[in-house]
Write a protein that binds this DNA or RNA. Structure first.
Length: 274
DNA sequence: ACCACCTCCTGATCGC
DNA sequence: TGCGATCAGGAGGTGG
């Protein structure tokens, strides 16, 4: 599942491949992938648009075109490939024909991912960005505390909410909460400034290390072009059920928090009482 | 304003 | 071996 480090890896990879290329036309094989804009508008507006830059906002990839920003969210299993010849399989939903005679192909087994388009001048008002939280790199502990002040939800659920803070997903939240010694079911509003500071500090450490290693490759996830990350070797708790806690040697347990598989050390991560 | 629950999807895995 | 049921999961939508 692509989180911030995986998305960053995809952005850098795509940048190296297709910057300054131009989109000639697009084939859409699964209409629901195109979001917040009609298929006809999307097809017409994107013609002859040059790819001037590729960047990201949290987990959202942004292609900076001449007149538009094209946003794409990979959700669970979205991937981009750059092909020299037209390639199709049952999971390839959108194919951009490039001026260089190559093809930018969006592939997504689960079909959860989205592609959208908005005029450059209005891009900040796009629904994907309008309420997006700050990333751990730039959020202050006071800002995070203010966002959590009235939140009675579990801290894990809060950190997965991209409107509160952008970038963390299921894997890295588990890692961050373990390192910060915070139980994922702790009510968000009960955390003190010191704990929130530790969450931010550890989020920065974990994300930077994961970016450096090209992301995490578990289950089916590989980034564009089959590139695989190496952060899975650095995971302390996620996927480590029944293995010894790196800190106290007691077994890591797996629970569900808001329907998400959650790994933690019950001894090192004490839950605050309500 | 909050928050629990549902939905979108398909492949992998489980139970019989 | 086959086949239906269950599960996983990011984030938007719904309704209490």
């Amino acid at each position: 599942m692509p989180e911030l480090p995986e998305v960053e890896t995809v952005v850098q990879t795509l940048k190296n491949m297709i910057i300054d290329d131009e989109i000639i036309s697009v084939d859409i094989h699964w209409a629901n992938t195109i979001d917040k804009i009609s298929l006809n508008d999307f097809k017409n507006k994107i013609k002859n648009q040059k790819i001037n830059d590729i960047t990201r906002f949290g987990k959202i990839i942004a292609f900076v075109l001449d007149d538009y920003l094209m946003f794409t969210h990979l959700r669970m299993e979205g991937k981009y490939y750059v092909d020299d010849k037209l390639t199709l399989d049952k999971h390839s939903h959108v194919v951009f024909h490039l001026k260089s005679n190559r093809f930018l192909r969006y592939h997504d087994v689960r079909k959860f991912g989205k592609i959208s388009l908005i005029e450059k001048a209005n891009y900040l008002s796009h629904p994907y960005l309008i309420n997006l939280g700050k990333e751990p790199f730039v959020i202050s502990v006071s800002e995070l505390q203010a966002k959590l002040a009235n939140k009675n939800i579990e801290i894990k659920a809060a950190l997965l909410d991209q409107h509160i803070m952008a970038g963390l997903g299921n894997i890295y939240v588990d890692e961050v909460l373990f390192r910060a010694r915070v139980h994922p079911e702790t009510r968000a509003k009960l955390l003190n400034k010191k704990q929130l500071q530790s969450i931010i500090d550890n989020a920065i450490i974990v994300l930077n290390k994961a970016i450096e290693l090209g992301g995490t490759t578990i289950r089916s996830y590989t980034s564009s072009l089959g590139v695989s990350g190496k952060f899975q070797n650095e995971l302390l708790v996620h996927t480590k059920q029944n293995l010894p806690c790196p800190n106290c040697q007691r077994p890591i347990t797996k629970i569900k928090v808001k329907g998400r598989g959650t790994y933690l050390c019950q001894h090192c991560q004490k839950k605050l009482s309500d």
